[in-house]
Every structure is written in C-alpha cells, then in structure tokens.
Design a protein around this nucleic acid. Structure first.
Lengths: 94, 94
DNA sequence: TCGCTGATACGGCATTGCCGTATGAGTTCT
DNA sequence: AGAACTCATACGGCAATGCCGTATCAGCGA
C-alpha cells in the first residue's frame, strides 16, 4: 500500500498528464478522479458507496482506462469543492 | 408548446412507465429527467448549460432514447433536491 | 409570412459503463 | 511463517450510452 503522500503525488502526476496531454478528443472537461478522492480521504470502496458510483467504474477512471462523462465530471467537481455538502444532499435523497 | 402542466404530466407518465416497465437491465437507479427539469423551471437549453450537460444528451434522456449513467443519475437527484445549492457550488468551480 | 424559440425524433460511431476475474502489496492475526 | 483480510492494479468483453449532427414541428411575436 502506498502512503497517503504517494497517493496524492500520483494524483498530481495524473493531473499534469491530463493538462499537458491529448485534449484531442471531443470531451473537453476532465477531472483527476484520484485527486478528488484524496480530498475526501476515503478508500475507493467508501468513495464509491458515498457518492453512488459503481466501484469498478471508479477504478476505471482512476486507472485511466476510461474517462468519466460530463455528468460524472460535474458530480466529481462538486465533490472536490464541497464533499460534505454533496453527502448531506445525498443523505436526504433516498 | 405545451403548458407547464402538460410538461409535468408528461414527466409523471414517464416516471410511471419507468416504475412499471422493464427494470430488466443492469442499471438499477433511474430518474425522470423531465420531472427533474420541471422542478427547476428551465428550458432544456438553460438546464443543460446550468448543470453542464450536453444538450443532445439531455434530450436523449428526456425522450427515453438513453438512460443516464450512475454518475449523472446522482447529479440529477441532487438537482431535484436542491437545485440552488448545486448551482451555487458549480458557480465556484470554474 | 417570416423568423425565432423550445422541443421531438433519430442516424451513427467511438467510447464508455459496468460486470467479472486474476494478481499483488501491506497489515494483522495465530 | 503462513493464513486471512483489506486496498488497489490490471484487464477482457459486450451491451449500452455519450455526443455529435441533421431534419421536422408547434407556438409566438414582428
């Protein structure tokens, strides 16, 4: 298991890769999912359950195998900005 | 153009259709997108821009041609519950 | 009648969602 | 040391969606 620091470092590297990289595709908006999760200090499993994302899908995103679509990107950015608020709203949404 | 009432009625019908209908597929969670939009009283175009969803994709959802994935479903439920809060957060997220 | 707006309807391809399974490192037991 | 558990990487694979575009239509104001 990596240290928390290494996790965040990995996240930053991914962010840089995205920033420098392609951009060659239709999808403009993007997010570093691992960096978002780092903000919440949750495990993949906890994060997935908290924000109602299938665990396997979350892993695809973090491992760079797939990119989240616009709706998920928006959700992830909201989580990054105000994780508690997002959780509060979801708690009252069945 | 339909009246606001008709729009909501259409939304309810869709919701019923979903509730009665299939359920035969993997995706469990679902939302009546038109009903969510009715809460916000926005046009498709305004809704799409406000919540960063491609207009064409939003239309696919409302017309029942496609179903939003889990991330988008979560976002939509948040919008339905607290549209202003969602807009406030997004306003500060570049 | 023309033009604008809000919306339906759908073709179509690249890409993703989401499922499953196998593997590996770190931790805590007994 | 070895077993058992947790957190995560890695990837096969198909159905389904994301997202683009274009054509058509109803209602409304100029």
């Amino acid at each position: 298991m990596k240290s928390a620091f290494d996790k965040i470092a990995a996240g930053l590297e991914d962010a840089i890769a995205f920033a420098e990289g392609d951009e060659t595709r239709g999808r403009i908006a993007t997010v570093d999912v691992r960096a978002v999760r780092a903000v919440t200090r949750k495990t993949q499993d906890a994060f997935a359950r908290a924000y109602r994302i299938p665990l396997g899908t979350l892993r695809d995103w973090e491992q760079g195998r797939r990119r989240p679509d616009s709706g998920s990107v928006t959700l992830l950015k909201m989580i990054e900005a105000e994780p508690e608020t997002v959780e509060r709203i979801l708690a009252g949404v069945a």
